[in-house]
Design a binder for these strands. Sequence first.
RNA 1: GCGGGCGUGGUGGAAUUGGUAGACACGCGAGAUUUAGGUUCUCGUGCCGCAAGGCGUGGGGGUUCAAGUCCCUCCGCCCGCACCA
Length: 882
Amino acid sequence: MTREAAAGIRCGLGFFQGISVSSTPARYNFHETEARWQKVWNERQTFRAVMDRAKPKYYVLEMFPYPSGRIHMGHVRNYTQGDVIARYKRARGFNVLHPMGWDAFGLPAENAAMEKKVHPKKWTYENIATMKAQLKSMGLSLDWSRELATCDPTYYRHQQKMFLDFWKAGLAYRKEAWVNWDPVDNTVLANEQVIEGKGWRTGAPVERRKLTQWNLKITHFADELLSRLDTLERWPEKVRLMQANWIGKSRGARVFWDLTDASGADRGKLEIFTTRPDTLYGASFAALSPEHPIVSELARNDPGLERFVAECRKTGTAAAEVETAEKVGYKLPLLARHPLIPGKTMPVYAANFVLMEYGTGAIFGCPGHDERDHEFAAKYGLPILAVVAPADADPNAFSVTDAPFVEDGVIINSDFLNGLGVDDAKARVIARLEEMGVGKGTTQYRLRDWLVSRQRYWGCPIPAIHCEGCGIVPVPAKDLPVQLPDDVTFDRPGNPLDRHPTWKHVDCPKCGGPGRRETDTFDTFIDSSWYFDRFTSPGLETAPFDREENEYWMPVDQYIGGVEHAILHLLYSRFWTRAMREVQMTSRDEPFDGLFTQGMVCHETYKSSDGQWLLPEEVARDGAKVVRLSDKSPVEVGRSEKMSKSRKNVVDPDQIIRDYGADTARWFMLSDSPPERDLEWTEAGVTGAWRFQQRLFRIASTALEQVPPAGTPKPASFPDTATALRRAAHKAIAGVSADIEAFHFNKAVARLYELANTIDSVKVTDDATKWALREALEVFVRLIGPMTPHLAEELWQQLGHRSLLADSPWPVPEDALLVDDTVTVAVQLNGKLRGTIALPKDAPKDVAEAAALVLPELVRGLDGRTPKRVVVVPNRIVNVVI
RNA sequence: GCGGGCGUGGUGGAAUUGGUAGACACGCGAGAUUUAGGUUCUCGUGCCGCAAGGCGUGGGGGUUCAAGUCCCUCCGCCCGCACCA
């Protein structure tokens, strides 16, 4: 139909003129058109970005995809939004960088290797090829010359080098610690990757293991990562809050307690952390984590304690378990001396509710003013002392019985603190502890260092060598990259690198003796912590990036992706940038200036009568009911949820693009739902978007018959209908521009519908109106350019332009056309609408009042009564009060 | 439990600073053309009422000439964190 369509366009003017009722306008052939423009953009390298200091730069980036096999609707939504911004900024005169790459390391490739007997590398690169073709079919304005894949040694060699630099700078270290072990993926996980006690990928409850692992010192930047959040003004408040909570800064004190055994012999010191040093006089016990070194030591000679510790380890950390788990303790053969009350000692327990990871792994218990301590004290019959009383309570009579008092109040029963408020008491007691040398004020963070070792094959090798004599030795820079071996087997669980016959056996770079390569690989979140920097100089061999290029393009001006990365990827990237700053690779603090988190793409779910999930294409509406296509059996329709393979509520983007075209898919993604909210994918919505594309083509084709050629001089004056059309067009420019800037794509779409309706309904009578019609059409085509670029480019050509729309500037509205000279003013009686009146813009108040008072609807409502008062808001409202 | 968000027609959603609630779209209803390639066009469409009019933004209360918008209170849903001392 290529030839027919072209012919239809050429002779269209004559063909459609004086349309006989029976003629059907040619349909818009999106297949042919979309492919044609994609080819043109590609051949002309339209979207290739080149550093140019004469122009302001704009770096638009969408979170790069994991090459899982095929793109999904979430990608389509994400990349459509980014493309609107990229094309818009380009038209606004910015030098736009809009690159794409692949987050290509990760476990699914190894799982595929095990299940399908295909090498992870082959699987990954085949997926990349498929997905690249899919992305290309969307018509995105990407600079493909900068494409990268994180599994490429030319990428990860720089990552290894940076790691060595960080190591040298003290930002990377090995530590033995209790770690989260995912029993399904057979690897450790970072804290951020444990969601409600379960592995982020597998959903399997994590186990606790004690292992020596690589860590990156993210806590070194804890305070800065927190305080700089305030300056990220173009980030969603929600994400900043989530990061702040994750970092979890609290002010408090570390307090040292002397330990003795029953006979009073010295047994060392116990360090605890508390945010409530003001309640120190209410202490009645101390409790240690079952993983605390003191407990481990005692357990060696105490089988009962050993059993208790083992029992605690079994209890998961999942929310449900934690809530129901009873607080239990094991009394240790120790006593703790109160640091402020001479002669006072208290019992010491190992307790299941004390976490080794937070603070010092030890607490003092104050049952009067802490829920958990209260529960524990009640169970073990420990004293409950009241040391804070409500401001209005009698300090001599106040006591705590059934429930702890956790609110603000006045300190009682606490020696020199009595009568103080909680905050004052904290300051005073910290000062006293410091004077006495038994404690100090500190800041505690919830954030823990980033554990980056993974016991997996398909990841970036950690460039380190174990030597019996020299310990752990860095791989010399000249030997980088440490490449993954290709010849590996996946016939058994575990890390293939570990059992490779030769790979790990190397000489120690220091002593030349026999050494062993580190067989752990990096967490793939490292790969994605700097890829945006690499995009600024993708081919460079000598360094991760060229400093000059990097400083021109970075930071990312607009980053777009899912909110699920609010903590993980976004926090790690902020850390990595600071680590690079620490080793003088950059002077920047923050990688992402603006962040937008898009909502998910959802769809109804369908279940057959036998409980099987069904694909949307397997069901159909039959009147009010939904039935299975194969046998017409009834289908249970579930609520709309995020598209997922497990629930089968997925729609394949490829099929949509094939059936309706990329522009339709893009248009629908932008319509209706605000981009930050979830979008419900519906068949009706897609066909609606499709019909609009067809209608636009028809409107434009019809209008084209009437408009003067491009470049026709602007008439000296316009009749009212033409001015109205011009106003509509110029208001649309201003409105759509503001909407795109503010990420209100759904509103921009609504405005474009309005302009289309206006253009469609205009009656052309004279040359001036014809000129205005061309103007409106040109405006329209340019405004839809970022959203439906193929259709826009096609219509742009039909309007007689030789240049590409993609290279054309954004239209500029005429200020005079943005304001109306008459306004509709609402007339109210006691705040209730009675009618409207038309007034000249900025009419004086008395004119407005006079006009309102003769409005028949108002007169009827007044019913002869005299107004008490008339409120006039110019250009808006006249409210008559009786 | 802590932190945050949201609640508007049959549906998705509009509504700068308090100033005509429901833009735009879907759906639905009526009509017209064509009758089939996923048609197109016109009109209507918050609720009650024949109408005048009344009632309407989760419920209740308040401030104001005027409240979806501000304040108080209650209810519901969603997200994040969670035995963090």
